[in-house]
């Protein structure tokens, strides 16, 4: 055994000590509070998505004639197919929820402020990527929701002035949903967006490492409490516990509420009630409140404001006396999002 270690050691000159040094970023002590680990949760779920997604891709066929049948095969015939698919679906749901919670935590603790503006924007990109992966994901099943969701999505893009038509054509590979549309969604869902997300996550983590995690001080902490503790093994254990809890939660959700299949896509009939997945309820309700281009542009504006929030916030703090304006705006934003989501959820049309 020592011989083998030596053999490897000669060829990969990294000692355990060095390795520990490399990974052992000091972790701020406030991370002992569990809700601060929300950033690790989406990352963990992302890994679950990659693992289950690769498994599903072994059977999935991205063409209108075969997509629904292949998902049916996965759900009803392949061994454990229903389980893998259900875990994939539930992990997606949890991931989006975790990303949103993480972002809220960062927002309300002001962790986006100087010098962390860039990482906030990287995070925003990750949020958008996550939502896009979610959207392309449920479009792949080729059930009624997939087809009409994609159609509606493309037509929303179409209302954007100047570039709308171009975006729509890029999305659908044509003026309308056609035989080449699904493979686009598949490539976006399974290759382009995940790779982009891997790079963004790497950047996100790298920036954290460069700057160090924001440190917080809580009033109930004793004087002698140090500022940091070790990543390895202490924080790793925390993350492992989180991971296992998530896995248990996922398999419970997958067995109790397995992913079902809606009616297959029918380009001739729009279902009477058509709703996207829950995380688009906000946008969907917004689009119903305002019409056409105005709705799309206002939504774009909101996203733009969210992107630039660190700068807007610092401007407010510098120029006005409302130092805590961001908290109130945040509370208003969260209430608006919850309100619109619940509104969309409870009404039929």
């Amino acid at each position: 055994m020592p011989n083998v270690l030596n053999w490897v050691g000669e060829r990969l000159p990294v000692s355990g000590e060095q390795f520990r040094e490399l990974t052992n970023e000091p972790v701020p002590y406030h991370l002992k509070r569990w809700w601060f680990a929300l950033g690790g949760t989406p990352a963990y779920l992302f890994v679950v998505q990659i693992a289950t997604g690769i498994l599903l891709a072994f059977y999935y066929e991205a063409a209108p004639a075969t997509a629904y049948e292949s998902v049916r095969y996965i759900t009803h015939e392949a061994s454990f197919g229903w389980f893998i698919r259900s875990v994939h679906k539930w992990a997606a749901t949890l991931m989006i929820a975790a990303v949103i919670l993480h972002q809220m935590r960062v927002y309300f603790t002001g962790a986006y402020r100087k010098p962390r503006e860039i990482n906030w924007m990287v995070g925003m990109l990750l949020l958008i990527c996550t939502l896009m992966v979610g959207f392309t994901g449920y479009s792949l099943v080729y059930e009624q929701l997939s087809f009409w969701g994609a159609t509606v999505g493309a037509n929303i893009a179409d209302t954007v002035p100047v570039v709308g038509g171009f975006i729509k054509n890029m999305m659908l590979a044509g003026e309308t949903y056609n035989v080449r549309t699904l493979s686009r969604f598949f490539v976006l869902h399974a290759a382009v967006l995940p790779v982009a997300m891997v790079m963004l996550i790497a950047l996100h983590v790298m920036i954290i490492r460069l700057q160090g995690v924001t440190e917080f001080k809580f009033e109930d902490e004793g004087k002698g409490v140090p500022k940091t503790f070790n990543f390895f093994p202490d924080h790793l254990y925390t993350e492992l516990i989180m991971g296992l809890l998530l896995m248990i939660l996922l398999s419970a959700l997958a067995t109790i509420f397995p992913a079902a299949m809606g009616p297959p896509a029918d380009p001739l009939t729009t279902p009477e009630v058509i709703k996207p997945e829950w995380f688009f309820y906000v946008a969907f309700r917004w689009l119903k409140l305002f019409t056409g281009t105005a709705a799309v542009l206002s939504m774009g504006f909101i996203v733009f404001v969210m992107f630039g929030w660190p700068f807007i916030d610092s401007w407010i703090r510098r120029k006005t006396r409302f130092q805590e304006a961001s908290v109130w705006i945040g509370i208003f934003g969260v209430l608006a999002i919850i309100g619109l989501t619940v509104w969309e959820a409870v009404v039929r049309h």
Binding site: L244, I248, S251, T255
Partner: peptide, 12 residues
Amino acid sequence: LGGLFLLSLVFV
């Protein structure tokens, strides 16, 4: 938790 995870998979 690992044991519980295993158990849930046994249920699966």
